[in-house]
Nucleic acid binder design. Structure first.
Lengths: 137, 137
DNA sequence: CCTATATCTCCAGAGACTATAGCTTTTGGA
DNA sequence: TCCAAAAGCTATAGTCTCTGGAGATATAGG
């Protein structure tokens, strides 16, 4: 049995966020102690870790809800999981593409040697001048 | 002189968002026409493009505010601008790494033959099990 | 000059939290 | 065993970064 604080420490999800997820129906209301405090079990911990992972990866609460729903029915064929996954895959690919473009720009920007001034700083110029970008955004 | 709509079209920032930035003090309140409509100049356009870039690159409003402040003092050394960009770069690299792992997992699922069930589905397992992750998150 | 489009202000909502206030419960040490 | 500190409770409000709608006014093109 974990308190909400234990759960928080073990998953890295803040206490109010855990309560928020409960309210949103992402995790079910756990048992309570005599004194009305939440008492979680191992599977709650796993579920929350799952959610945390998804969020870290930028999945929306809704996407995670879908995946959780699927994971709750391990006997079903995974066609639905496939569909949901396919939908998210497109998203993820797009995100990666954007981030890579960004990475390139930042790499170029960061390569400055610190010896010059803001006046000729590439960060500032790169942000100010669309013409310096290699890609569309 | 540009109207707010011109500015929006030229920078790709939506009209309400421009007004929001004004409210937040990221851009200063422009002159108004006889009829109280905002009238912008070239330098407003440049500043907004700068902001747009920063946001596209995932910088927080605060980071952008810092960079704008820096860009207003071109005589200063650019170490701070570099630092802001470098910090952000580390973030971006990490996100890319995570998303690539997710992409692989999703690819695997999508390419599945429909013959297995959610029970042995890798997306679900990957999200559920921290042990399958290559990195800390 | 008239109409369609653009703009204005103000306000509400979305999404995902985060914080505060004012309690009650648990826990660890003397 | 007792008690203070830490942790938890509910309820509500606020944050951040926009986004959208209503209803009124301004501007531009034919």
């Amino acid at each position: 049995m974990f308190s909400i604080g234990d759960l928080s420490r073990r998953t890295g999800v803040k206490v109010p966020t855990i309560r928020y997820y409960e309210q949103m129906g992402l995790i079910s209301a756990p048992e309570r102690s005599e004194g009305n405090q939440r008492r979680y079990e191992r599977r709650d911990l796993e579920r929350l870790a799952f959610i945390r992972h998804g969020r870290d990866l930028g999945l929306s609460i809704e996407a995670i809800r879908d995946l959780l729903e699927l994971s709750g029915h391990p006997e079903k064929p995974c066609g639905d999981a496939d569909r949901i996954a396919a939908e998210h895959l497109a998203d993820v690919k797009e995100k990666i593409a954007k981030l890579k473009r960004l990475e390139q720009e930042l790499e170029r920007i960061v390569s400055c040697d610190g010896k010059h001034t803001v006046g000729d700083c590439y960060v500032i110029r790169a942000l100010a001048d669309h013409g310096l970008c290699e890609s569309e955004h």
